[in-house]
Computed example of a mutant assay.
Amino acid sequence: MTETQWLDEREAGLWESYRETYRELMRALESRLITNSGLSGADYALLHPLSVAEDGVLRTRDLGRSVGWERSRLSHQVSRMEKRGLVTREDCPSDARGSMVRITPLGRKAIEAAAPDHVTAVRTFFFDHLTPAEVDQLTTLLTRITTHLPTTCTTSDCDE
Rank of each mutant, 00 (worst) to 15 (best):
T2S: 15
E3T: 13
Q5W: 07
Q5K: 14
Q5R: 15
W6N: 09
D8V: 04
R10S: 10
R10Q: 08
E11Q: 10
A12S: 13
L14Y: 12
W15A: 10
E16K: 15
E16L: 11
Y18W: 12
R19S: 12
Y22S: 09
R27S: 11
A28I: 07
L29R: 02
E30G: 11
E30D: 05
S31V: 09
S31K: 14
L33S: 03
I34L: 13
S37Q: 07
S37H: 06
S37D: 04
S40Q: 01
D43T: 06
D43V: 04
L46A: 04
L47T: 01
L50Y: 02
S51K: 10
V52A: 00
A53Y: 06
D55W: 11
D55H: 14
G56H: 02
G56C: 08
R59V: 04
R61T: 05
D62L: 01
G64P: 04
R65H: 08
R65A: 12
S66E: 05
V67S: 04
V67P: 02
G68K: 10
E70P: 00
S72Q: 13
L74N: 05
V78L: 05
R84T: 00
L86V: 09
V87L: 07
C92Y: 13
C92G: 11
C92H: 15
S94F: 08
R97A: 10
G98C: 09
S99E: 10
M100V: 04
V101K: 00
V101F: 00
I103E: 02
G107A: 00
K109G: 05
E112L: 08
E112R: 15
A114P: 08
A115V: 02
P116R: 07
H118Q: 10
V119M: 15
V119D: 13
T120S: 15
T120V: 07
A121V: 02
V122P: 04
V122M: 14
V122Y: 12
R123M: 13
F125Q: 12
F125A: 09
H129M: 04
L130K: 07
E134A: 09
E134K: 06
V135M: 09
D136A: 11
L138T: 01
T140R: 14
L142N: 08
T143M: 11
R144E: 03
T146V: 06
T147K: 12
L149F: 08
T151R: 13
T152L: 14
T154L: 08
S156I: 05
E160M: 05
